[in-house]
């Protein structure tokens, strides 16, 4: 999409930019291309606004997400914009508090996957040879395993011990957060495979370039070559796939929460809110707002993140195909 926008006016761009073009690094040029893509910039603004609103929500509204009332299943009205749920809780408040968890899951999960994926891929690509072979075989094998099993095992194997430990040393509320932390880490730990493949490919091709050879000849250490010379050259690609990992992880979390494996009540994420709405399906009355509002928020966030990722990819890696 944004790709096409850019293709239509390469001549105009090159005329206006040509005077300054030679002073710009490839990354700076990429950011210029990015700013020209309308859907991507709009998505970025939408996401920032959403983030600000979600963070500032406790200041704006006094209502608590777990405050129950007698107003059971009230449709959207001036008082409850998103309606109320089975316990009379205000769905608008719940959706915004749920947004916190869903967004944190996306951010933390993506960071974990970034850390593992980039390290694994960079080491494999840089060391090369037999180690590279073995590490990438490992990635192949992990691809063949359903990743859901890792998340569940990680959660169930360590969660209880950590919870009791935290409840003893800190407070019970801290312990309740522990289960979510494991969810975040677990989701990140199963989403790094594609990242590592991409990084490895890039490092492999950069490794034999002249500037790396030169730096090696000057006696630079391996860590310095990797951090100073190779990583800055692939950071664009990393940002692109990071942006595309965030929606994937948010989606994954919503599936798990829907199946009852993710966030546990009274905590709620978008996925578990939708699950609660789906449980209320009956042939007598239709409570559409229970699904439409959290689902709409989830879908629009995913949409914005994907548009952002697309825009970044077109900017940083113009030749790549949509994946």
């Amino acid at each position: 999409m944004s790709n096409a926008v850019e293709h239509r006016k390469p001549s105009g761009e090159s005329q206006t930019v040509s005077a300054t073009r030679q002073h710009l690094s490839p990354n700076q040029r990429a950011w210029r291309r990015f700013r020209k893509s309308k859907p991507a910039v709009l998505s970025a603004i939408f996401l920032l606004a959403l983030l600000a609103l979600v963070l500032a929500w406790p200041l704006i509204s006094q209502s608590k997400p777990d405050a129950t009332s007698d107003a059971q299943f009230h449709p959207p009205s001036a008082q409850n914009w998103f309606g109320t749920d089975v316990h009379g809780r205000d769905l608008l408040t719940r959706t915004f508090y749920g947004a916190r968890i869903s967004l944190i899951v996306g951010a933390v999960g993506a960071m974990v996957s970034l850390l593992i994926g980039v390290t694994w891929g960079a080491v494999a690509g840089y060391v090369g040879g037999r180690a590279d072979n073995a590490m990438m075989r490992g990635v192949d094998i992990l691809y063949a395993l359903p990743s859901i099993i890792f998340v569940i095992v990680l959660k169930s194997a360590f969660e209880k011990d950590l919870k009791t430990w935290l409840a003893q040393h800190f407070s019970i509320s801290t312990a309740n957060y522990a289960s979510m932390v494991f969810l975040f880490i677990g989701l990140g730990a199963v989403s790094w495979l594609t990242m590592s493949r991409i990084v490895r490919g890039q490092v492999l091709s950069l490794r034999s370039r002249n500037f790396v050879e030169a730096s090696k000849a000057l006696g630079a250490s391996h860590a310095r070559i990797l951090l100073k010379h190779i990583l800055p050259n692939i950071y664009g690609i990393i940002i692109v796939y990071l942006t595309l990992t965030v929606p994937a992880i948010i989606l994954y979390e919503s599936f798990l929460s829907y199946l009852g494996l993710g966030v546990q009540p009274p905590q709620a994420s978008w996925g578990s809110l939708i699950a609660e709405g789906a449980q209320q399906i009956n042939s007598v009355r239709i409570y559409w707002w229970l699904i439409v509002f959290p689902g709409g928020m989830l879908a629009s966030t995913l949409l914005a993140l994907n548009f952002l990722g697309d825009g970044l990819r077109d900017a940083f890696d113009p030749r790549s195909e949509a994946r």
């Binding site: 599936f255 399906i281 559409w288 699904i291 994907n306």
Partner: peptide
Amino acid sequence: AMLSFCIPNIVIAPLLIL
């Protein structure tokens, strides 16, 4: 196309059922 994979199954399925 983007919409089709950004509206998750868990949203579209209950709505279709409804």
